[in-house]
Design a protein around this nucleic acid. Sequence first.
DNA 1: AATGAATGAGCTTTCATTCAT
DNA 2: TATGAATGAAAGCTCATTCAT
Lengths: 212, 212, 212, 212
Amino acid sequence: MSTGPAFKRLPRAVRQQQMLDSAVRIFSRRGYHGASMDEIAEVAGISKPMVYAYLGTKEELFVACLHREGTRMVQAIAGAAAPDLPADERLWRGLRAFLGFVGAHRDGWAVLYRQARAEQPFARELTVMRARLVEVVAGMLDHALRAEGREVADTELEVVAYALVGASESLADWLADHPEADPEKTATQMMNVAWLGAGQLLHGLSWRPPVA
Amino acid sequence: MSTGPAFKRLPRAVRQQQMLDSAVRIFSRRGYHGASMDEIAEVAGISKPMVYAYLGTKEELFVACLHREGTRMVQAIAGAAAPDLPADERLWRGLRAFLGFVGAHRDGWAVLYRQARAEQPFARELTVMRARLVEVVAGMLDHALRAEGREVADTELEVVAYALVGASESLADWLADHPEADPEKTATQMMNVAWLGAGQLLHGLSWRPPVA
Amino acid sequence: MSTGPAFKRLPRAVRQQQMLDSAVRIFSRRGYHGASMDEIAEVAGISKPMVYAYLGTKEELFVACLHREGTRMVQAIAGAAAPDLPADERLWRGLRAFLGFVGAHRDGWAVLYRQARAEQPFARELTVMRARLVEVVAGMLDHALRAEGREVADTELEVVAYALVGASESLADWLADHPEADPEKTATQMMNVAWLGAGQLLHGLSWRPPVA
Amino acid sequence: MSTGPAFKRLPRAVRQQQMLDSAVRIFSRRGYHGASMDEIAEVAGISKPMVYAYLGTKEELFVACLHREGTRMVQAIAGAAAPDLPADERLWRGLRAFLGFVGAHRDGWAVLYRQARAEQPFARELTVMRARLVEVVAGMLDHALRAEGREVADTELEVVAYALVGASESLADWLADHPEADPEKTATQMMNVAWLGAGQLLHGLSWRPPVA
DNA sequence: AATGAATGAGCTTTCATTCAT
DNA sequence: TATGAATGAAAGCTCATTCAT
């Protein structure tokens, strides 16, 4: 007597992952509008009504993709920046994780993200996503400030964090368009701007990654 | 024998601008795919075939919008940053001009840009556009560097410029979502990150805009 | 539990035939350009997207019609002219079959054919079709020649066959415009010209169909 | 003092011929539907409203082309076949004139004709045109018959003439598709079929053009 | 659970044709 | 006379989405 049904048909969870996999592939390759439910279903090796049954409309399907990939990314970053390190080290690790992730999924995350930015219906999901990131970064900064016994208004912190996140997203985009570029090096350069600022860069200073 | 405005049979040049105006509005409001040529024509107060006659296909029309708005923006920025000022002053002016422009055309440039990134066919136009911006920013930095007798590889400059532009774009986005925010103040904060870097910010330093 | 006809959800093969039937009707009635996919779908009792799903674009649909009707016709003719009869008998039977077929499908084949000649994209299909016919006729002639121990260059045969086919097509056209005319009699007259030639006709000779 | 107006603008008749010239060019090159009034006007070096003013709608314009070219052709043929020659000689001259004409206007007449056959609205004009030809041919045959003291029903004559005309048209078409072919030779072969008939050809007879 | 059959709705694009100057 | 400006109307094609089996 088995502990569960015999799955001649694959179990629901597995099927869903297959669908998401192919959806991510197609959305990335063709863009949100260029992708057709037909092709997605075909690539998933399944019939269209199944896709609707499991993951809802095209919009919902895209959100699901966004969600899954975004969660993976946030985890990758959060996992990299241990809270008990100095601020610059944490920032560096976070950045490296972020750009590393994007570099490794050049055709996945970055493109989905780009698509999402273009369409209003995904604003909500994006906002949530970005909020998590900003929160992480702002947390780092706040932590460091408190360690020095100083304090800053929340909105100011948010704007700074937002700028940092924005710059990183931009570089992520740039990475997606430059397959030959090295994420590690790009992260270093970003760190230079972010940590030292253009002013000091111009005066010859530069930041170097700690030796691992 | 009134010399008053004739509402029909306008000369080509005038009609074209009307069309572009309407197209920018609609593309921004609905997105590239969401926009229909019907609506664009209607808002322009003209029939569809005229749009095709004067500005070509939807794709070409979008490129035309991108081109016009992009050119305006670049001019606004380049005009603001006089070449004979110190680097931080130039950067500041450029930033302020950029965020000011975006703030003033909240429904124009930023949205078009976002749309364009999502669709392959506009890659070319975008590359050109961005190249101009990056060139302006990189030019500022390069100028400052040479003044100090130092030199940096082009790609490095490009990445830094890219990060700065990206951070600004991000804040532009943030501005678009926070109508109550003050562009001037946002520019100042951005300048802080960009010029001083997070490191110094954390140590209590801060940059202040020069008194006009 | 009726086994009566279901009017919806028919299997693909059936629908395709319905579509082709309707397409042939409409193309013949309105001409290739005059025909609209809308009307074809409507007459087939189905929605437009199905037509596209099963038979492709308008051009492909027309080719499919041409192909189906042409094949039917060639079969009718080839089946009529048994290879072991004398040449004139075979020619006669072929002719009769051809004009009979056209007479029976007055609104089908002849009109499609006429349409196809006018449009470049169908040249290929037409060439193939006509080649089959010419081949059949040339085959008859060649067979007869060899039986007499003589031989003629292929191109000459082709031209003669072409002329015969052309004359027949012309009469087919004439039939289409004279609904009261008798295909059988027309075939006899054609046979007179084709077999005896105008020269002998003028001298009082005439050819009579063999008593069946 | 000039005997007429000074034509800074070309006189109407000349303009019309220019338009017809370019119309024939475009109709032949693109087909009736593929041709656009825009292109015709452009090629004629004139504005569209002028075309409408001078030659009416697209349909009327096409009929005008058909008419002019058809008339030229009929004249060429009628002029070639002098009535006081023996029947075969007249037939031969007519044929040669016809195929010669078509060969010389490969992109003109044959293509217009092909187009016209495909569209109902031109049936009338075509009927008239063909009637003139059939009349000419039937006249030749009738003349020859009467010379021998015999007589044939009109419809029979018409069918025979029709077959001959049809065969010739077919070969004209064939010529249009085979630019390398020699009209003279094609005419000879046609004459063989038409005059001697397939029966005698098969027995080794052949007709030769009279030495000029 | 799974799918082939089916469609409503909409979009871009083109063209013959006519005003108004 | 001559033309740039303007449009009504329609057609081909695609797609997300849902029945009926």
